[in-house]
């Protein structure tokens, strides 16, 4: 459809503001999901799913962009896990229906948040500090190195290890979720 039909009208007010925020974030989100999944149509599907969930939870969302990226990357990860489970079982068993995990499920989200917080708190002081300065204060690796008086390569190593630890923590309920 090249243009909106005459009987259609544009949004205004709060809804338009929300749509603008979504539109601003959408291209980068779609590109990231395309890279994560390796499939354009799945990326499109997951992006739309994230938007739908945003609308469902709109009253609880304070940062639209952060929320969209958080939800969409989780959906992509979840999709990849289900693909892997399917392929692992396909060789030995007849096709099985794997129940979709719900990335926005309140209990699951709280559990994962608790795991992430615990992982961050249990990190050694310096990797934790590096991660917080990068993720929460948005400092570059060079700025973190200058602030902490360490080499940039050390910052990179701390950051890498911290992120890998958090990724590991995120996976705590993985096996049970997929087979429930």
């Amino acid at each position: 459809m090249s243009s909106a039909p005459a009987s259609l009208r544009s949004a205004s007010g709060p809804r338009a503001a929300l749509e603008r925020e979504i539109q601003t974030a959408y291209p980068a989100l779609l590109a990231l999901l395309r890279r994560l999944t390796g499939r354009a149509e799945i990326a499109q599907e997951l992006c739309q799913d994230a938007v739908v969930r945003l609308i469902e939870n709109e009253d609880r969302v304070t940062d639209v962009r952060a929320w969209l990226f958080r939800t969409a990357t989780h959906l992509a990860w979840d999709w990849l896990r289900r693909q892997r489970v399917r392929s692992e079982h396909a060789a030995a068993h007849p096709p099985i229906e794997v129940r979709s995990t719900d990335a926005s499920g309140e209990a699951s989200a709280m559990q994962q948040l608790a795991a992430l917080k615990a992982a961050l708190q249990s990190m050694p002081e310096q990797p934790r500090r590096v991660f917080e300065l990068s993720r929460f204060s948005h400092l570059s690796q060079q700025e973190i190195a200058a602030r902490l008086g360490i080499r940039r390569k050390t910052v990179e190593n701390h950051l890498t290890r911290a992120l890998a630890l958090l990724a590991r923590a995120l996976d705590t309920d993985h096996e049970t979720k997929n087979f429930n």
Partner: peptide, 18 residues
Amino acid sequence: LAYAQVCAAWFASDAEIM
């Protein structure tokens, strides 16, 4: 899968959430 897991962890651990 590992890359997606890392991305998910990165975006799940923003300041607001943590």
